[in-house]
Write a protein that binds this DNA or RNA. Sequence first.
DNA 1: CGAACCCTTGACAACGTTGTCACACATCTG
DNA 2: CAGATGTGTGACAACGTTGTCAAGGGTTCG
Lengths: 336, 336
Amino acid sequence: MRDVAERAGVSFKTVSRVVNAEGGVSEVLADRVAGAISELGYRPDERARRLRQSDAKTGAIGFVIVDVSNPFFSSVLRGIEEVATAHDSIVMSGSTDGDKDRERQLIDAFVSRRVDGLIVVPEGSTDNTLRVEIERGTPIVFVDLEPSELTADLVRSDHHLGSVAATEHLIAHGHRDIAFFGDHPDISSSRLRRAGYEQALTAVGIDIDENRIVQDRLRPDEWRDVIRTYLETHERPTAIFSAQNFVTVGCTQALHDLDLHTTIAQVGFDEIELGDVVTPGITTVPQHPLDLGRRAAQTLFNRIGGDRGDVTKEIIASPIIQRGSGEIRPAATPAD
Amino acid sequence: MRDVAERAGVSFKTVSRVVNAEGGVSEVLADRVAGAISELGYRPDERARRLRQSDAKTGAIGFVIVDVSNPFFSSVLRGIEEVATAHDSIVMSGSTDGDKDRERQLIDAFVSRRVDGLIVVPEGSTDNTLRVEIERGTPIVFVDLEPSELTADLVRSDHHLGSVAATEHLIAHGHRDIAFFGDHPDISSSRLRRAGYEQALTAVGIDIDENRIVQDRLRPDEWRDVIRTYLETHERPTAIFSAQNFVTVGCTQALHDLDLHTTIAQVGFDEIELGDVVTPGITTVPQHPLDLGRRAAQTLFNRIGGDRGDVTKEIIASPIIQRGSGEIRPAATPAD
DNA sequence: CGAACCCTTGACAACGTTGTCACACATCTG
DNA sequence: CAGATGTGTGACAACGTTGTCAAGGGTTCG
């Protein structure tokens, strides 16, 4: 900026006035300054600008996510981006893989860069990094997951109700021996989904069988083998509720590997690509990640804009989509 | 910081020393300061810190992407993130949807926040926003696409060779009437893929038929209908090369819709989820987006670290993966 | 016992920007 | 024609931090 001022033969302040189109600058000078700016390729330093007006927003928000490369989360991010753009804001994001330390690091990095707010998928967070931030008044919105001991605005799918619906759907098609494959129970959505599964079973008097439940934190590509092995080493269930998108993919692959895809029924939680092209099509309880992202960001920007209302919870339910896999009936129905 | 200093009864500088563990502070004071810091929940302002040491890095890079919610790109982002984390850097990202203005806006936003470098998927960029940045010496790496008039480091898949291989594969299975469905020719990868397709055909003396080529910029979910309509209104090709991931998904859906999936051969460019579970499995020329992201980021951080070597181009080829759809032979082979 | 040293601490300037104010000069008003 | 008003411009402080330097106090050494 100094260089520009010197080149145009004016003071900093005049340059500043031109850059910000404040007016009150004669045309002659304004032109000279504009010329100098483009000759030197000068860009105002946003950091310094925001530093000076220290009450001003930084025009950036942070998104702490479990894994961007999971299409569910990347769609959430896309939704957030859209709203952020409309508010002239930039999105910084980072994946945690559910690692507590990484989560803390990311939040620290965002906070120390003075983001205007945070959207967090809190996978490991009884953490008090977040607690401190909330107390300081940093706007924070949770998305997808719900931490047990922290309170802030929240937007997520109705994991419980969706799972009840999925399980009831299988029961309605004659199944009583339904396996549950899902994420690690540390993850709040996974707990809720399992609870929904159990509730639906219990409601019709089916006992919960621990052998029918597999919950684990695996890499996306590991589920295929795990489920195939399960099916090879256990008495086979007549139906499966695969309670997460990667699990659903792995499950579908495993069923095809063993040529059981027309024998064992499957309902998944969350949509997957080509879910309607596989044979049979995969019956799922969909989520709407783009929408989740938009809503979360909308809530965040309301807070950033000064909304001091009560903490809100948006819990979104979606009806099951039938495509075939969930409507397979058990092969034999032995009298019991 | 002032508050902390006051509370601990010391000067700013001492607080600064404690925060940065500079040493040379007595234990008594250090403890008092540490106490004040945690009581007040103080976080140093990274912006001010970096402002003061104006030669220092900001610890942030920008990623200008076409669409984060495309799994291909979100995997690239994930790869970038990994490397960035290892370099203590944050990633800001934004989707352009190939819109030039949006691209310029994003680059501006990143540059004025003084990112240490940029990774760009240059979809609309003859733009001189970027040219100016390159001239100023901002480290920039292009990924996936290659702008015609700008020079910087580049990491991408071998779109041309991959497409030659895909087309040759179909030819080798007896096809001479092969349709090409792909992205808009504005996009450099799309041009290269089409060129590869044409080269392979021409090499064996097959004429290029414009009616067999559809290139367009569509929303991901539009391809299904477009391709179905094409197949309903045109004499049917015996094989299809679907030259992008969303196109491949739409094509597979359309083929299933019309029950042509066992009749018409298909080879896709880029992997898609469940590509091995659909019947038949989808033969593809894979890309390795995670790896592309890692390499691009690695190159960028080398530059940021001061590497002034010649501009590099990494062009990565991968062998075709056969899964069934690409090995379908034409129904009848009329003498011609 | 005084000089030379080390250690801890603080005052001040600086980073790149904008807000505040005052100054110079031109123009209007009574 | 003096005073009031308006217009363009620049000097300076401030944002939150760190680098530089000097001062204060204690220790060591001759």
